[in-house]
């Protein structure tokens, strides 16, 4: 009986972990806005994660794994975006994406976008 309860608890915990949603709010600090190179970097990070990763701007939500969707955010300098991931490891992928934004995409090309 005890082992069955433990197994049930394990399944519930695992299910919760899979369904966990993590969100963080970030601001675009690139003078040129979120153009193709930073979009590519986002896709690269997001594609390394099995669950869903979305980026929201107001009511608009795009798949962070799709390079053709990200530019449709038209995220200019100063735009506030919400990063959202679901699934196991969601916290880690959000952390990596936040780091990208905070490092200004590793201070990528400041003037030659």
């Amino acid at each position: 009986m005890a082992s069955r309860t433990a197994r049930k608890d394990f399944i519930i915990a695992a299910t919760m972990k899979q369904n966990s949603v993590f969100r963080e709010t970030v601001t675009v600090n690139l003078d040129e806005g979120l153009h193709l190179v930073p979009c590519s970097k986002i896709v690269k990070v997001a594609q390394g994660f099995e669950g869903d990763v979305r980026i929201l701007k107001g009511d608009l939500a795009v798949d962070a794994k799709d390079i053709f969707e990200l530019p449709t955010l038209v995220a200019t300098y100063g735009t506030t975006l919400v990063l959202e991931a679901t699934g196991e490891g969601a916290d880690e992928v959000i952390e990596q994406l936040v780091r990208l934004f905070e490092s200004n995409f590793e201070a990528e090309e400041s003037s030659d976008s």
């Binding site: 003078d31 193709l36 955010l73 995220a75």
Partner: peptide, 14 residues
């Protein structure tokens, strides 16, 4: 005009 560039990218991507 960085905004124009982003809107053009949006149009093409869309």
């Amino acid at each position: 005009r960085p905004g124009d560039h982003l809107r053009a990218l949006e149009t093409i991507s869309r």
